[in-house]
Design a binder for these strands. Structure first.
Lengths: 193, 193, 193, 193
DNA sequence: CATGAATGAGTCTTCATTCAT
DNA sequence: GATGAATGAAGACTCATTCAT
């Protein structure tokens, strides 16, 4: 897991690595704020490189979008991995829910990627989201065993709720108190009656 | 209230009305399943007419999208109006939540329209969604007065939750039991602790 | 030469004749003020008829344009015929020059039609402009015989100068004194040194 | 003043510059002979490039047309500047008239641009044609002072006459003797009686 | 390796003309 | 005869992707 994950990459030259990182950064920003229809050229320009460079690093626009998602998902996976290994099942579960939602912030094309896991043909995405799903599965089971979450809920519903919570928050805007109220509703709803 | 609604339209010839209706039908289907980036030509073809006909009825693609949304929103508004006038505040509120979610199904550009009410510049959309918001506001207040919904929740959060529920369900797929479980979580979460 | 000239037309019903006249009127106005690229539908609407009616009277847009031109040319031809029959060769010639320019006013697509005489494949136009050319030829010869116009000038140049004068005036705008100065320049230039 | 003129352009690559120049060349030819309604694609094809290339160099068709005009006007401006600086007022004036007419040849959208100076919104055009107008103004005044041109003529009329002469010549065709006779008429007409 | 110019298929939209009502 | 709805071939412009410099 030395690099960005995937199929055997020879080590990039320093400047190439820098370009790649910068492109990923900028693409995340652009896709998030302007949507995935933003022209590749805008991304390249914002990253200070030519389109050619962009396409050298990412063979298609879709591959770039995928890489952006993978990065986000990896960050999430790191968090859920830690929490799945934690001791307190109930707290860990609820923390994980918040963590996923927090790190998915922005144009929700991203959370969707997580959900598209099974259907999606891209290996990198599939692997990372499978890991997250596994962690969430464990956390859910733990919380249910601890009686902290409704026992009839299954992983697909949990994920759908994560996507939904993300949408709701994206919809709502910045007011922190209101955001907290939204989360309270969903998290309370997850608890057994 | 019987027809396509909006600002005074001279009565169309029978065949023209049929084409218009068919275009609206097909566009709803296409936008819903394939997203708003689907080519106008596909919509025209699916409706069995030439592009020219589409553009005669709807001067721009955006106008078509707007008409589709207005139709959906009007259907929702009719439902919420009825429920807002009903006697049982608590039931009416929860029924309204389900109704909005049901009739918003699809690539969720739709619930967003409702949410975008104040900001967006399309008069037809603005009016209809303002009406829905008004109904939802009444229903929420009634349910809160009746002690059936958390008192700290405000209309913007309710709407955000509707958008979120829609996303969650869209994400989930068809399984009716799972869909019901999702809704149960959210609706239970809305109740006071 | 009872009607609009051309190949055998059965007498139109009163309303049809009225429509045809109105279309010609409106088309002249529209082509003149908005150019020949104005949509046929605008012309039909301005004339208070449907496009279908327009195309019943004039099988193509070009035919309509031609009819408009023929009308103008006929008006010019009537004037030049009268002047060609007049007694005073010099005055008649200069009057004709002014007359052609006056009646050609407007988007000069019209004067061009006159010039396109020989090349142009449309019978109606060809005939009428041939007549005008004949009159102008006579007038020119008369004025040259009378020593009022440079002897080296030929009909094609005269026509080119008419087109040019028309362009110049169209370019200039409304100021009557300035228009007169332009005409003075050209008419003086036509005189022998 | 050496190149394509306008607001600071970074130096293009050799091939790009060649394409740009070729497009300008071809567009001049096409607009001149077939009018401004000729499809952009025809221009691109004639220049041996794809449409994309055309639109890379000129963001809209109008921008291309403007560039073509600017080039023509600059060529004219260079000539009138030289003549305005010359010693012999009368000759300089008449030479300038011929020069403008010569270099404006074609579907006369061009001389119009000169005339449209004040009104039109394109900065590049405005500046260049303002320069030409200034030169012509000086030349006219000089020639009038020298008694070589009618004293009652003003700049707007001169410009209208340039447009008119251009139209007349465009109308006339290639015969050099006839063209010369036309110019003689107009130039003689400009002289005082 | 990086650059950005070139490509051309694809998208929206217009408009002359036809034809069912 | 009149109407205006329907048609579809263009036309301007965009953008992912390729490739010469």
């Amino acid at each position: 897991m030395s690099g960005t994950g995937g199929t055997q990459e020879r080590p990039l030259r320093a400047d190439a690595a820098r370009n790649r990182a910068r492109l990923l950064e900028v693409a995340t920003e652009v896709f998030t704020t302007r949507g995935v229809d933003a022209p590749t050229e805008d991304i390249a320009r914002a990253a200070g490189v030519g389109v050619g460079t962009l396409f050298r690093h990412f063979p298609t626009k879709e591959a770039l979008l995928e890489a952006v998602m993978v990065r986000r998902l990896e960050s999430i996976a790191a968090g859920t991995a830690r929490l799945a290994a934690a001791g307190e099942p109930a707290d860990a579960f609820f923390d994980a829910f918040r963590l996923v939602v927090d790190r998915s912030a922005g144009k929700d094309a991203f959370t969707r990627a997580l959900a598209a896991a099974g259907r999606n043909p891209h290996a990198a995405l599939r692997e990372t989201s499978a890991a997250i799903r596994a962690h969430l599965g464990e956390l859910l089971a733990g919380a249910q065993d601890a009686g902290a979450v409704r026992p009839d809920l299954d992983l697909p519903e949990l994920i759908a709720l994560l996507v939904g919570a993300n949408s709701a928050l994206e919809q709502l805007g910045a007011d922190p108190a209101a955001r907290e109220r939204i989360l309270t509703v969903v998290l309370d709803g997850l608890r057994p009656r």
